[in-house]
Nucleic acid binder design. Structure first.
Length: 231
DNA sequence: TCCGGAAAACAGGGGACCAG
DNA sequence: CTGGTCCCCTGTTTTCCGGA
């Protein structure tokens, strides 16, 4: 298959194909590496439940189900993944249905792009340094892309274009990324109540936070804490 | 090729409430 | 504390067009 060769040696894009039964029939080296495995051989023929912890597997299964059932793509989903080495990694995921000759769905292909951190030079060059600094400093407040654009002396259109160019994210996705990442750290490194973490991270109430956290990380905050704290 | 503005479509944020 | 529903409304994103 062409796609397999295309993604085989690409280091920052995780690629895999699952058949209609949800079993991995293809994956690239980057997939194995993200899972902390030596080769992809130990993944092939397995399902998500065999590979990921139950709460995450549940989320991934639901996504696969959506693709299989609706025949629609999942595009540019921002995901936070707790890497094997304990670091937090951000990825943009995409899942597309694969159709057989008769048009029926026979599987799905998934790619997940590593959101690499741009260098200071990139930020200064694009005029985004001030915006990023403001978001990192004030993520607990109500940040408005229009005000951030003003701060950077850019039109909102320009800000969005440059954010996409540098981060592969919209401004609001970047704000969300910053908040969720801060929340993830607080969940693991502190004993703060979830409602307090929600408020500290700029959410109006705890239920909004839980919903967004789950959508991004794949687990509710409390579940995430129980899985990763002291592990 | 880059930029800005406008308009329209659309997604989704989040408040409120409730059940478990 | 989690998670579900309902639903309004805001803001985001896309697209198009014209100008430099």
């Amino acid at each position: 298959m062409v796609a397999e060769r295309l993604f085989a040696e690409v280091p920052d894009i995780v690629f895999c194909i699952k058949n209609r039964d949800g079993l991995y029939i293809s994956a690239n080296a980057a997939f194995a590496e993200r899972l902390g495995l030596k080769s992809i051989n130990s993944i092939l023929g397995k399902s998500v439940s065999d590979i990921f912890p139950p709460p995450l597997a549940k989320t991934y299964l639901a996504q696969d189900h959506y693709v299989f059932k609706k025949g629609k793509e999942i595009n540019d989903r921002l995901e936070l993944v707790y890497n094997r080495d304990g670091t937090l990694g951000w990825y943009l995921a995409r899942k597309v249905p694969l159709h057989g000759k008769s048009g029926d769905i026979i599987g799905l292909a998934s790619i997940s792009r590593d959101l690499l951190t741009p260098g200071d030079a990139d930020l200064r060059f694009t005029g985004l340094a001030k915006v990023i600094e403001t978001i990192h400093r004030n993520y607990s407040e109500d940040l408005k892309p229009a005000e951030l654009a003003k701060l950077a002396k850019l039109s909102q259109t320009q800000l969005e274009r440059r954010m996409r160019k540098v981060f592969k994210l919209t401004t609001s996705q970047f704000i969300r990324k910053t908040r969720i990442e801060a929340a993830a750290r607080m969940l693991v490194n502190t004993d703060k109540a979830i409602i307090d973490i929600a408020l500290d991270c700029g959410y109006g109430d705890q239920s909004a936070f839980t919903r967004q956290y789950k959508a991004t990380v794949g687990m509710a905050p409390g579940v995430y804490r129980s899985v990763y704290k002291n592990s």
